[in-house]
Design a protein around this nucleic acid. Sequence first.
DNA 1: AGATTTGTATCTTTACATTTC
DNA 2: TGAAATGTAAAGATACAAATC
Lengths: 462, 462
Amino acid sequence: MPVNSFDNYPMSWKPDKKALKRPFYYSIASLLEQDIINGFLAPGTKLPPQRELADFLDLNFTTITRAYKLCEFKGLIYAVTGSGTFVAPNAARSITISTDKITDCIDLGFVASFEQTNGIVAEIIQKVADKRYLEKLLNYNDPTGIPHQKTAGLNWMDSFGIHVDQEHIAIVSGAQNALAIALTALFEPGNRIATDLYTYSNFIELAKMLNIQLVPIPSDQFGMLPNELEKQCCQTKIHGIFLMPSCCNPTTVMISDFRKHELAMVIRKHHLILIEDDIHAFLTAGMISDYQQPMFNLLPEQSVYICGTSKSICSGLRVAYMVYGDALRKNILQSIFNVNVKTSSLDAEVITELILSGRAHEIVSQKKQLAQSANDIYTEYFPVSKPVGHPLSFYRWLSIQEHHDAVQLETDLKMRGIRVFHSDRFLSGQTTPNKYLRIALSSTNSLDELKMGLEILKQYLG
Amino acid sequence: MPVNSFDNYPMSWKPDKKALKRPFYYSIASLLEQDIINGFLAPGTKLPPQRELADFLDLNFTTITRAYKLCEFKGLIYAVTGSGTFVAPNAARSITISTDKITDCIDLGFVASFEQTNGIVAEIIQKVADKRYLEKLLNYNDPTGIPHQKTAGLNWMDSFGIHVDQEHIAIVSGAQNALAIALTALFEPGNRIATDLYTYSNFIELAKMLNIQLVPIPSDQFGMLPNELEKQCCQTKIHGIFLMPSCCNPTTVMISDFRKHELAMVIRKHHLILIEDDIHAFLTAGMISDYQQPMFNLLPEQSVYICGTSKSICSGLRVAYMVYGDALRKNILQSIFNVNVKTSSLDAEVITELILSGRAHEIVSQKKQLAQSANDIYTEYFPVSKPVGHPLSFYRWLSIQEHHDAVQLETDLKMRGIRVFHSDRFLSGQTTPNKYLRIALSSTNSLDELKMGLEILKQYLG
DNA sequence: AGATTTGTATCTTTACATTTC
DNA sequence: TGAAATGTAAAGATACAAATC
C-alpha cells in the first residue's frame, strides 16, 4: 500500500478518507455534494484533478471520474478537458424565476407582460362564455387543439413567417410547458444542448432537472458565433441547440438574418435539433428591418418552433403554439399526452377569439407603447452611447463593474425595496468576468413605480 | 482468438458480427433495437445470455450487459437474474391511450367521464365570466393556485380524508400533469418505481419517456401484496411506488384498509416515495364501507397525493390538486415552475366555483347514476358469479381465454366497429399467461350506444 | 512545438446475488 | 440441496483527445 503525505500538497478539496464507504464513487460524490451545498466550496473553485485525488485516496482515477460525473449530472460542477474541474456558478441554489412570494418590493426581476391590457381579455372571456358551442370545449377531444383554434394560431404566426399544416402544430400550455415537452420528447438524460453563454434561467433549471447538459457558446452583437458552435460540435457530441432569435433573454440580442443562415449551416451539418423559442416574435417581425424569417424555415425538418402568447397576449391563460418538422412529430405528440393530456380548450378558445376578433393586435400595440415608454424611462436613468439589443425589449441588460457577489447584490437591493437579477443566474456554464443585471421593465404596477425602482437602483450603483 | 462455431447453438438472436462498429456496446444495442422494432424479435422472446453472446462476438460479457442495459432503459427488453433477458411485451409500440384520431367507432377504449354533465359546467363558466375580479385571474400571480382556490380544493378533498395547510397543496393541470411533475421532481433517470403488474398505461409511457424503470409487483383482490413488495425492495434499490388505491386502472381493484396499513409499513421501512393517484376517490369515499382514509395520511412525509378533477367534475378543464409532505415540497414547486409555470387561474376558478356552489356534487351524483346504469348494462352482457372490484367503476376488466395476440384482437374489434384495449397495454413488466380486456363504460354518447358496443364485443368473443 | 496535464470513452476484471434445476 | 446459469454492481486498464505551458 503506498504511503503518501499530501498534507502539503495544495489540494482544494480533501475528502476524509475514513468517511468513505463502498461504493467509493457514490460516497465521494455525496461528500462533494455536501461540501458544495454547505458552501465550503465556493462557485468557481477548482477541484483536484482526477488523478491527484485518486492517488490521495488510493483508488483508480476512473473511480474519481465516475464520482465527478455524478455531480456534473446534477449541475454542481463542470469539467473542461485540459483545464480541470470546477464548482458551477449556480451549484448550490435554484435560479428559477417566479412570482411566488414577493412582498413589498418593486419587481424589476420577474419579466411580466404589462398586465394593464387584461381588461380586453376579460371582455373576450365573457364573449366566449356565451358561445353556443361552449359545452363542446369541455371534453377530452382534440388534445392538440381544435382545428379552428390551430388555424387561428397559424393566422397569428403568419406574419412571423410560419406556414405549416394542421398536422405540424399543437397547442400546449405556455412556452415553458412547450420547452418541457420538447426536451422530454426529443432528448435523453446526458444529452447536450448548445445555448448562449447567458440564457433563460428557467430553461437552465429545466435542463438541470431533466439531466440534460448545456454547452455554453460565446456570442457577439449579432448572436451566437457559428465557428464557436462548430468547434464545440466537433469536440463533443452535441444533440441540440436552444435559441431565442427575436430577443435573447436576458441579453436582448437579436440574431441577424445573415447570422441565422450561418448558424443554420452548422446546425444542419451536425444534425442538431433546434429549439427556437420565439416568444418575442411579436416585437420583432415587421418592426425590425433586419427580420426576415424564423430559423424554423431554414431547418424545418429538425426544428421545434415555440410561440408563446403569455408575453404578447395574456400571461394567465397558458397557451403556446408548438410547430415542428415531421420527423419530430411522433415524439412530440407522445410527450404532449404524457405531460398534459391536453391543454384546456377554454383557454385556447379565448386566445383564438382574441386573435380572430382583432383584439389581440390591439393588445399588442398597447404593450408596444408601454414598452416604448418604459424603455425611454430606462434610458433616462441609464443612458447608453450606442444602443444595443432590441429597442422594445421588456427587460434590459445592464453592465455593472463592481459588486461581484451575485447573491449579496440581489439581497442588498431587495432590502432597499427592489428585486433584480444578477447575470450569474443566467449562466449556462462557466463563470465569466463580465457582470450584468437584468432589469425587467414590464412588471411594475405603473410607469411611476418603474421610475421609483430605477431611481433606487441608480443610487445604489452610484 | 477462440474459434467457435455457434451455427448449431440455439441462440434466438445472432447479430451480424461484421456489422459491428466501435463502440461495440452501442452498436449491439442499435442492432437489437432495430430487430425488435422491425418485428424480427417478438415480445417475450428470450435473448441469448450475456456470456453466450459475448463468446459469440469475442467480447467481454459486461460489454453485452451494457448493450442490454441500453435497450432495457428504452423499455425494449427486461432482464431477470437467473432466468435471462426477454423482449418486453410492448417493446415496439406506444401504448398511450388518447382520443386522437378515433373515427366511426364505438369507443370502449379511452375512459372518458360521462361527458353528459358538461352543461352544468358551461353554466358556471358564464357565472365566472361575470365576476368582478375576472381580470385578476389573468396574470402570472399565484403560480400554485390562488388561496381561495386552494381552500376550495381542500374543501373538496375533506371527505376523502385529506387535511393539510395551504403550503402543502398546489393546483396543477390535471392528474397526468401531476404525475409528470411528481416523476421529474422526485426521481432521477434509472430510478425504479414499484407498480401493480397491471397499471395505468399512460403512467407506463410517462415513466418510459423519463427513463424511470417500473418494477411490477403481484396483487390479490385486496391490492398489491406487501411481502412481494418487501421482497423486491430487498433485492434491488427501489425508490418509489405508484398506487391507485380507490380503484386501480385497469383492474378496478380497491386496496382494502388493512392492506393499506400493511403496505405503508413496507413503504416506510424502505423509504419509498409514494405516489398516490386517487382520481377515483369521489367514487369510493363514503360509498365503499371499507374505505377509511388515503394512504397519504399513513405516510404524510413521503407521499404525493394526486386528486384530479377530470373524472369527477370536468375533463376539459385541466385541474388537479397535488398534496405533498414538507420534505417533497421544494422539489415539487421547482418542477411545477419548470413544467407549467402555473395552471390557468381561469380554469381553476371554474372548478372552484363548481365546488363552492355545490354544483360539483350535483355533477358527481349524476355521474354515479350513469356509472350505475352502465355497470348494470355491462353485467347483463357479461354476468359474473362473484362481483370483483369497484362496483361503480367507469371501466371493467374482462377476463378472456383465447385471442392471445393483443394487437390482432384490438384490430379485429376495431374493424367490427368498437375500440377496446387488451391487457398487454397495461403490463408494467413481464408478460403474463392471463389475458383481459379493459372495457370503458363512460365514453359512448349514450347508454344505447354502450349496449351496441357490448353486443358486438359479446358476439365476437362468442 | 512538444511534453505535460487533465478529462473522456470504452472495455475488462472481479466479486457477488438470485434463480433454476 | 447445491452446482450451474444468469444478471448486477463496482472498480480498474487502456487508449485517446484537448488544453496548457
